[in-house]
Nucleic acid binder design. Structure first.
Lengths: 200, 200
DNA sequence: GTCTATAAAGAGATAGAC
DNA sequence: GTCTATCTCTTTATAGAC
């Protein structure tokens, strides 16, 4: 690598990645439907010709973006799960980091959710799998925290997972009314409630 | 009213309402940016001429829609709060009813959230006020349920409020993994956790 | 008030030059 | 691989008829 001339496939991949990142930004700003191919290419520093050299159309870039983000997230989660220390604490700091770019993240996330929901149920699988995977990881952490099996922990994990979106929305709408670490505090409350439910 | 000929202002208001309802549907299906004025007018049974007779442009109908839905929700919440019976149970059944048209509701809701987030923070007030009002109503109900003051109940109410969006998203993505009454069950868990937190 | 007609701009997608 | 040129279709918004 370093200062060497990029090989053909490397520069190809670079352009593709630049276009993907640009698309993510423009989607977040204007929405998928409101983002023109020209704007995306322009943001990446190219013209439309380059765009169509890498993607068949706008839908293709949405699909590619969803898969790329899903893959990236899988890697991050896998890393968290493999870490030796406190998995729960690791997940917490992950959320804290995310809250720094919360608005951009939420905007893109809502766009991808909306886009997935617009197609028939059978074709929502990429997003559904991403969600399932994230929830599985959370379920493991919750089960460990509560000292129960995964079956009992599943619903609690769902709540925690759902809170991430829900609180992000509330914080984006009115940052003053939602603390930056609301997810962490809320998760503690939910875990306490789940613990109490186990011992009636 | 009844079978009498509509007055001028009545028929005017009727057309406006039809256009608003049509806009809500089309926004939910195609997104605000993906919805053309012609589609909206067509859905309402008119042509674009009628549309431009009532709204300056597409942004105007989004603003009107947000205000109209906010007003409608305020009335519903006010009715709930005024009802003699168990306010909490009334809120629950409200959620249950909503889950029937969950996808449509969520689609429109996410569109309006996205649209609000696309403008500068100062201009998000209509949605922010709507959220604040809903949360206030919830805070009252939570305080009564926990037997605490509103200050202590505020954060718990925020969690419950956020869960509504978060669980709706999860259920829309994969209905099989989220029970229809998940909000109710989750709320019970959260309340239990909040109660335990009060008595350390 | 709502329709039809139309002007003007924007966007998707392809073809050919380099 | 990426650019410029171009074709076509869609959309916005206005103007004038009824």
């Amino acid at each position: 690598m370093s200062r060497q001339r990029l090989s053909r496939s490397e520069s190809q991949a670079l352009t593709r990645m630049r276009l993907l990142d640009a698309a993510a930004e423009v989607f977040a700003e204007h929405g998928v439907a409101g983002a023109s191919v020209e704007r995306i290419a322009d943001r990446a520093g190219y013209t439309r010709g380059a765009f169509y050299g890498h993607f068949a159309d706008k839908d293709a870039v949405v699909a590619a973006l969803l898969e790329e983000r899903t893959r990236r997230e899988r890697e991050e989660v896998a890393q968290l799960a493999a870490s030796e220390g406190d998995t729960w604490e690791a997940l917490r700091s992950w959320h804290r980091e995310r809250s720094a770019h919360l608005e951009d993240w939420l905007a893109l996330r809502l766009e991808l959710v909306r886009h997935a929901l617009r197609r028939p149920p059978g074709e929502r699988s990429v997003l559904a799998q991403r969600e399932a995977y994230a929830r599985e990881a959370l379920t493991g952490a919750v089960a460990r925290e509560l000292g129960t099996g995964t079956a009992e922990a599943a619903f609690t994990a769902l709540i925690v997972h759902a809170l991430e979106d829900g609180l992000a929305i509330q914080r984006a709408i009115d940052p003053g009314s939602v603390p930056a670490d609301a997810v962490v505090t809320a998760t503690e409350i939910v875990l306490r409630g789940a613990r109490t439910a186990d011992e009636p």
